[in-house]
Design a protein around this nucleic acid. Structure first.
Lengths: 200, 200
DNA sequence: CTGTATACTATACATGAGCATAGGAGCCCA
DNA sequence: TGGGCTCCTATGCTCATGTATAGTATACAG
């Protein structure tokens, strides 16, 4: 699939676009016309592309170009729940919190661990490029490593902070100098930050 | 789309299957052969299907049958191209820049305007919560309003900045005090920022 | 009873389309 | 220096294909 010459890439690109807009592939002559070259010129390119495995054609049939392994390799997506207002005292994963589902590329949700999403509120993580209103994609996990950004349950409040283990306590560190670190010995980690999604 | 006769449904079903297996639509004669009827018989059916809006054809073009409103198109996500390294001097939308496609929720790509995505490089927009490595989802547009974050082509460099119109010039403003604003009278806007996507 | 739609057959024609032969120019490798 | 690859022109053959005319038969609606 590699080893394509510049010209061949152009031709392949044209076929792509053509199919995109017409839903059916071009003829040899249409390809030739698109590049202002002779029919045989285009024909040779198509045969070269076929030999290189980028394309498949059926003999003697018009418009029988098929793209082999087209770029759109089904990048799958997964649906994860977006949790809305997290009321103090309620279990975070209760049904009441469910707002809607959002779709995220499956490569984020790499391992088969469940994920969820939260609206970010406040500016405590602003220096990490996380703004109020962003959607945070969280991998559900009870544990975290030093320096991970986590969603933690802290005295019935849910908060997004950077997480550190110190001698005999945990430190939850905002990424904003106006917020002091929180020290606690009693906290529950709900998940680790895996992605941020923002819409303008 | 309703009011199809039994025969017409059969024909439409055949076209469906044919495209499914071949990736390209059948010819009139292939359709005729499949039902052991005459060419004109099949031709009339196709024209009837077209009149009823189930199918679209282009005049005088072989294999130009297109299915109108194919079974299920309620995909809440859309694929947009992720452009990679933008080399100076090269057209940004050239095929060489194509890296892969990414999936974004369709509500971002609300209007039918084409979108694309870019890797963010550098820290010039850090105070807007846009970090190096983020993926920016851009709505293709030649224009922008005051204060929009835009992708602009500036002396063969592509840059992401906040855009302002001043008396007789444009101002491209970084969101980082260490970067001075850029003033120019000659710039081309490539698109407006619609979303940010970050993966940890 | 007539008009209109469906569902065909049979035949025909101009152009569309795949494929081929012959050849040329430039390039890199051995 | 020669062979093989890419990229192209020009011309042509043959069959595929969309479209058309003319006609048959059935059914249903006003």
């Amino acid at each position: 699939m590699k080893d394509l010459t510049a010209r061949q890439k152009e031709i392949l690109g044209f076929i792509h676009e053509y199919i995109q807009t017409n839903n059916y592939p071009p003829t040899v002559r249409e390809t030739a016309r698109a590049f202002s070259i002779s029919v045989k010129g285009a024909y040779d390119h198509l045969k070269a592309l076929e030999k290189k495995g980028c394309i498949k054609t059926s003999e003697k049939r018009s418009r029988s170009i098929e793209l082999v392994a087209p770029p759109e390799d089904d990048t799958p997506v997964v649906q994860i729940p977006l949790l809305g207002e997290i009321a103090a005292g309620k279990p975070i994963f209760a049904d009441e919190n469910f707002e809607r589902t959002i779709l995220v590329p499956a490569d984020i949700v790499a391992n088969r661990v469940p994920h969820f999403a939260l609206h970010v509120k406040g500016d405590s993580m602003i220096d990490a490029g996380i703004l109020s209103g962003d959607i945070a994609i969280i991998e559900r996990s009870e544990t975290a490593k030093n320096g991970d950004i986590v969603v933690a349950l802290l005295e019935e409040n849910v908060t997004l902070k950077r997480f550190y283990i110190e001698n005999n306590r945990f430190r939850l560190q905002a990424e904003n100098p106006r917020y002091a670190p929180i020290y606690t010995q009693d906290l529950r980690i709900l998940g680790r930050l895996r992605g941020i999604y923002r819409s303008y």
